[in-house]
Amino acid sequence: MASLLFLLVASFGIVLALRVLARWTAVSASPFEVEPWLSGHPPTEHALSRYHARWYTASVVFLAFDVEMLFMYPWAIVVGHLGPGAVVEMFGFLLMLLLAVAWARREGAFRWA
């Protein structure tokens, strides 16, 4: 834990050092402010807005499915000595989920809305 914390500090330290160094090496240290890149046109509105992510159904399926990983890792290290029963159970469980995924695919969950 301590070494992880140390690494976190050290790596962000490097980033900070680069940023400080850049203030020195850059032709000017003061940032300038511009409008966003629109092929040479001025913006008609701010880009930050209610952005329509058209894969939201897929993200719902994802959120449900990824809870499964919670069990997968602890299971992975004990399956070797728990024997065939553990394999059957886990993959029965996964098969059920994959069937749900196949059904979701037919409903167009992985398509753009």
């Binding site: 850059a26 032709v27 940032p31 300038f32 511009v34």
Partner: peptide, 10 residues
């Protein structure tokens, strides 16, 4: 490293 830093409005 030589470039002047740049940022966008808002």
């Amino acid at each position: 490293m030589r470039q002047r830093p740049r940022r966008t409005v808002s």
